[in-house]
Write a protein that binds this DNA or RNA. Structure first.
Lengths: 204, 204
DNA sequence: TCCTGACGCGAGTCATCGCTCGCATACAAT
DNA sequence: ATTGTATGCGAGCGATGACTCGCGTCAGGA
């Protein structure tokens, strides 16, 4: 951000710009996302916009950051709440929290996950993943009896990735299965995986 | 494609353009991908380029299509070869084939999967997924005893998505685990999932 | 050899933005 | 009130890049 808004009206302007950015993104798509259009939608002149944002991508970044931050917050909260619980219920509730968070604004999810280059999301998405992954890894490490997977960090990586993508795709591609069924499959996937003994197939 | 190349030299030109397109994509990234640059890299004039390609995105599409087509071919071939086999070995070999295919050109994978909007890949990627998914679903349906998952189509969806993303992320993010370990985890994930009995948690 | 259509060229057009700059206005401190 | 500063405006600059067009060249059939 180029300058800190000091007065109240300028702080409101920044907010209006961010809101307009999100709105343009959602209703016109990323390809039509121009600074002039955002300024217009915000009822603000292009010049004013550049008082607070260094360039076009900074606006997108704020929208994307806030989005993933929001999702991360909800998932991490749900997970932290249930960290004491055991087994399938925790998995289910956490996956449920993720799906709910993603369903909250499917249009924005669509733009963020499909129209934006993935690298645009990388920073925030990685933060989200690491946050959840660390919680899961800690959980697994604290309960060695939970399953047969030897390395909590690896298992957490696998689980988080799998759930994240299942949930995202389910929301984006339109539900081919019911929501409950999705959650059931996720529980089965994670549960089965954790209980599965290490294979010793060797290489190839 | 705007016009079919009839003479030999023009067919070669089209090939040179596609090759240049891939090359520009890989070495300069998608943001720097301009028709003039591609024409330059191909040793061809911009005008000639537009004799065969309707617009810029058509060139990208050809590159992307060929890439996923190649990957799909290798994976489907490997899967079809081992469709008679049973259990973990088949999963491992197929995952191995996918990882090998993705590793073949990591730079291109990087651009295709990270710099391009996902929607750009949607058509071809979906084709790849459906192709593999159908094979897996058929396999599962033919062997009801293989596991406890009741719906082959759903199970296939879960498995394909999970493997695809694990493999892609492993190649792209740099291996946090060894390749063998990745394959072990995939086998455990799929194996455990298929053996996992249907939970009847009900909703929420 | 000649002729016709396919091929190829590349300077240039045109529209699209990202972004700036000079000026007007609103606010706050004295 | 007055002055200094923060805020806001919007016409327009400058660069970029997708795409065209009119003209030369080449292949291959007669």
């Amino acid at each position: 951000m180029r300058k800190q808004p000091r007065q109240e009206r300028s702080r409101q302007m920044v907010e209006r710009i961010v809101a307009a950015g999100r709105s343009v993104l959602v209703s016109d798509g990323y390809d039509a996302f121009s600074t002039n259009r955002v300024a217009g939608a915000a009822g603000v002149s292009p010049g004013s916009l550049y008082q607070y944002f260094p360039d076009k991508s900074a606006i997108v970044d704020v929208v994307v950051d806030r989005y993933w931050e929001e999702v991360a917050e909800q998932v991490a909260a749900s997970l932290a709440d249930r960290i004491a619980e055991f087994g399938p219920a925790m998995v289910r509730d956490t996956a449920d929290a993720l799906v709910t968070a993603l369903e909250a604004d499917p249009a924005l999810l669509r733009v963020v996950a499909r129209e934006l280059p993935l690298s645009r999301n990388h920073a925030r998405l990685e933060a989200l993943e690491r946050r959840v992954r660390d919680l899961v890894a800690a959980y697994l490490a604290a309960r060695p009896g939970t399953g047969h997977r030897p390395q909590p960090a690896v298992a957490a990586w696998v689980i988080v990735l799998a759930i994240e993508n299942l949930a995202t795709r389910w929301v984006l591609d339109g539900p081919a299965v019911t929501r409950d069924q999705l959650l059931d499959e996720i529980v089965a996937l994670v549960g089965g995986y954790l209980l599965s003994a290490s294979v010793t197939t060797g290489s190839r």
